[in-house]
Design a binder for these strands. Structure first.
Length: 851
RNA sequence: GGAUCUGUAGCUCAGUUGGUUAGAGCGCACGCUUCACACGCGUGAGGUCGAUGGUUCGAGUCCAUUCAGAUCCA
């Protein structure tokens, strides 16, 4: 059923975007491009279904839905996957081998992996991502996503590279992007700079080591530090300006132990009197606080840690005493880790350690994909202004956030928290291979040294460019690296620098302006709350500087998927569920039901039981429909504006449709508020009362036992109810509903319109009638259950008593009730006074046989 | 340290702007092979709404304090 319908939707082009629609008619969705090199996860099914439910609803509401889906395939995750999958490594110095073929199986030992050229490496990235993307597309199709697959993009394809480079060139020209030599967070494993958004703070055990500096009088000033290996790069000591212990020292100089470097003692409010001994070493650079001190106190740079994470092999020239130079020689070339041990050893043998190390745990910054703490090194990088260094721009970006409707609304405070906590501009250059090249060149002077202050930008019609293989405008390739020539920028963009432009990429910015103005700013950005600080924020930054607007007007934030024990699913815990399993076991509709019954923003457990309910609902929908069609229901029986409503003669039938009308109203309202879960639950509870009570009550009449007009009334009611119900469930259960739709209607339910309450204007009636009769039905069923007889046992006579109004309602459907409960005589009695329950008494049963 | 979310039946959750006796599904108990459906149907038991105080004629819902869990930011 599922593959048959998927094929039909594709063939009937139901999800194709029509470029003739006006902006008002369009509903555009900027979907997260999944990282195809990552593993498939049930979380993908969860959040993408939630988006799809909205897309299908909007389509039925008559919107021309623009629903593309891209693949985020550039960057480090892909590089790592290619390395591990093929067993290769990139060596940019190697020449290109046009006949290269990767090993059949990757070598077990990383040392035996093939070293291949950058171009060969990128070719493998291209091959593997295409393969991975197919797997994702298959899953999403099976899940029933109503994506327009013609609009697919890849964040590494020519178009994406062009958009990314164009946006960058414009940002450079408008001053929103710039290059600077500055201290930068650096991952020594991946040898690349890292942005604030990619940080992860992890609690790590560490220890304070205490040792003395000496003032001019030879008095000891004890400092406590967790990073004694940075002692050779110490440029100052710092204490809080109001810390009385150190006030008289501020302004004087002290001499460092082991290395005999004279450094000033300074005051700064960021020094925490509670931490360690209250006075800290400033080293260039131990962390971002050092960077702040260095900048605000105008300190010199004394870097000793290189990009490889090792201490410089040359003894720094600021260490001048023979003893100091000797001590440094014992550290030169060591990794941070062994340098730390060596310094501790030196301090101990010199008798300078003033206390036992004090063990602590503290938060250390890691690259989210790395496993070594980040270092701070000075390097030349490209930045995009994001308000991190500019209060006015920050305020502007907070304001943009307020122009977006957040679903759920509280997610906005995550955005504002993040924006307000920024401490620097967005670093967008990465020292990697598989990414969008930064499209700049630098002129070389007569000594072949680059002039970074005058980068050469490409013309926009030249894009995309690769400065590593194409010469700078106005130069010949032969001038590369020559004095008076040029050099290409070797770095690539951070993946977010491209991903932040998905609205521009999908909307064909500057490539098809007609398309772009129809879809931008987009109507909806769905995504997870983990990437508010990255993808969402960076997109707002780009739209702000490039278009002076928000990128979208609504955002729908999905929750996380937790395992049934409320733990986050992760590979290392071994609790990951492969998406195909539930799809095969329960079907796409069931999985979608599970996803669609969770509210936006709510972290949700992976619940098989919820999927079982979904499957039961889908099957019930098929069976109830079969019943209706078995009763001779056809398309002609559907009551629509213009058809004769007087055919619905029975108050019970009128009551059902009156109730349905209010269900439609409520479901529509909830859907409009992006509360698809409540829309579903409203429709669902109506549907169960429809099958359990209404259908049971009218069976006798449907078989024709009460004459033709009464039967015609049922047929019209069943047809009309089914017509609305199938459409109400279509966004969540696209397969079951369309299957049924095609049994008796033309085309697909997904091309049909969302039901309107006005479709039922012609039918008058009170929902209370159904409630009262259903209550009577339940009372009689209960009476039989309590009498311990089978439900099909005949009732010779019984008395039902209850409030006057309810008894009137019951009387209006007495024949149906009698038939459904196999009752020969039902006596109705109105009770006086306060509202009372419906009570069954004086029950006389046909057979004495107990159940 | 700052911010946000969550706490309701054994479990998973709903409960809109305060308004009768707090709901659903699963699970549990009992019963039913009823002519759409055993991938099913019926009936039932089960809750002092985390705690305390306040506002109100009236609080699961609003306010304050507090406890527990989670997340984000620093």
């Amino acid at each position: 059923m599922e593959s048959k319908l998927s094929a039909a939707w594709s063939q009937e082009q139901i999800f194709h975007f029509d470029d003739n629609a006006t902006r008002d008619e369009v509903y555009s969705i900027d979907t997260p491009p999944p990282t195809a090199s990552g593993s498939l996860h049930v979380g993908h099914m969860f959040s993408y279904t939630q988006t799809d439910v909205v897309a299908r609803y909007k389509r039925m509401r008559g919107k021309e839905v623009f629903y593309p889906l891209g693949w985020d395939d550039n960057g480090l995750p892909t590089e790592r996957r290619v390395q591990n999958y093929y067993g290769v490594r990139c060596d940019p110095a190697k020449p290109y081998d046009p006949h290269y073929a990767p090993p059949e199986k990757p070598a077990k030992n990383q040392r035996d992996w093939d070293m291949i050229s950058r171009r060969n490496f990128i070719e493998l990235c291209e091959t593997l991502t295409v393969k991975d993307e197919k797997v994702f597309e298959d899953l999403f199709t099976t899940l029933g996503l109503s994506v327009d697959w013609r609009q697919t993009y890849r964040t590494i394809d020519d178009h994406s590279r062009t958009v990314s480079q164009r946006a960058f060139v414009r940002d450079v020209r408008s001053g929103n992007a710039y290059t600077a030599e500055a201290p930068t967070l650096w991952d020594v494993t991946f040898r690349t700079a890292v942005a604030q958004a990619e940080l992860e703070a992890k609690e790590r055990p560490s220890a304070y080591y205490r040792y003395p500096f000496k003032d001019s009088a030879g008095k000891e000033v004890i400092i406590a530090t967790t990073r004694p290996e940075l002692l050779p790069s110490c440029v100052a000591l710092v204490a809080h300006p109001e810390d009385e212990r150190y006030q008289q020292l501020v302004g004087s100089t002290v001499t460092s132990p082991l290395f005999d470097v004279e450094v000033p003692v300074l005051a700064h409010p960021l020094a925490d009197p509670e931490k360690g001994s209250g006075i800290a070493m400033i080293c260039t650079f131990g962390d971002m606080t050092d960077v702040t001190w260095w900048r605000e106190l105008n300190l010199p740079t004394r870097a000793v840690i290189g990009r490889d994470g090792r201490l410089s092999g040359d003894t720094p020239q600021w260490i001048t005493t023979p003893q100091g130079r000797d001590h440094y020689q014992q550290l030169a070339g060591k990794t941070v880790h062994s340098a730390k041990e060596a310094v501790i050893d030196l301090l101990q043998t010199s008798g300078l350690m003033r206390a036992e190390p004090e063990k602590i745990t503290h938060a250390v910054h890691f690259y989210e994909k790395g496993d070594k703490p980040l270092e701070v090194v000075t390097s030349r990088q490209w930045y995009i202004r994001n308000g991190g260094r500019d209060a006015e721009r920050r305020e502007q970006l907070v304001e943009r956030g307020r122009k977006i409707t957040w679903n759920p609304s509280f997610m906005r405070s995550r955005y504002e928290n993040w924006v307000e906590g920024l401490n620097g501009d967005w670093l967008i250059s990465r020292q990697r291979f598989f990414g969008v090249p930064i499209p700049v060149w630098y002129p070389l002077n007569s000594a072949a040294e680059p002039d970074y202050d005058h980068p050469i930008l490409p013309a926009e019609d030249q894009l995309p460019v690769d400065p590593a293989s194409e010469p700078a405008p106005g130069f010949a390739e032969s001038q590369r690296g020559e004095s008076g020539g040029f050099m290409g920028e070797p770095d690539v963009f951070d993946t977010w620098a491209t991903s932040s432009l998905t609205p521009q990429i999908a909307g064909q910015w500057e490539r098809d302006s007609d398309r772009f103005q129809r879809v931008f700013p987009f109507d909806l950005r769905p995504q997870g709350h983990d990437i508010i600080r990255t993808w969402l924020f960076s997109s707002v930054v780009r739209a702000n500087s490039l278009h002076d607007t928000v990128p979208w007007t609504n955002t729908a934030i999905s929750g996380w998927i937790l395992d049934p024990d409320r733990k986050k699913m992760s590979k290392s815990k071994g609790n990951v569920v492969i998406p195909n399993e539930p799809l095969e076991q329960f079907g796409a509709d069931a999985v979608r039901y599970w996803a669609a019954s969770a509210k936006l923003g709510a972290d949700t457990a992976y619940e098989i039981s919820q999927m079982k309910i979904g499957r039961r609902l889908a099957i019930k929908l098929l069976n109830a429909s079969k019943f209706a069609f078995g009763m001779g229901v056809t398309e002609e029986h559907v009551i629509a504006p213009g058809s004769d409503p007087t055919i619905i003669t029975e108050p019970l039938d009128q009551a059902l449709l009156a109730k349905l009308r209010s269900v439609i109203e409520q479901a529509t309202e909830h859907f409009d508020n992006y509360d698809y879960a409540r829309a579903l639950s409203v429709s669902e509870s109506f549907f169960w009362s429809f099958t359990d009570d209404y259908v049971e009550l009218v069976k006798d009449r449907a078989y024709g036992a009460q004459g033709e007009p009464a039967q015609a009334s049922v047929r019209a009611t069943l047809a009309t109810a089914l017509d609305k119900l199938l459409r109400l469930f279509a966004p969540v259960l696209p397969f079951a509903t369309d299957e049924v739709w095609r049994w008796w209607r033309h085309g697909s339910v997904h091309a049909a319109s969302w039901p309107e309450p006005s479709e039922l204007d012609a039918v008058a009636g009170s929902p209370a009638v159904l409630d009262a009769v259903a209550a009577g039905l339940t009372s009689l069923r209960r009476a039989k259950a309590e009498a311990n007889v089978k439900q099909r046992t005949e009732i010779l006579s019984a008395r039902i008593s209850g409030p006057q109004q309810e008894m009137d309602s019951v009387r209006s459907a007495l024949q149906d009730l009698q038939a459904a409960t196999k009752s020969q005589v039902l006596e109705l009695e109105s009770t006086e006074g306060a509202p009372q329950e419906i009570v069954v008494s004086e029950l006389a049963l046909a057979e004495a046989a107990t159940a």
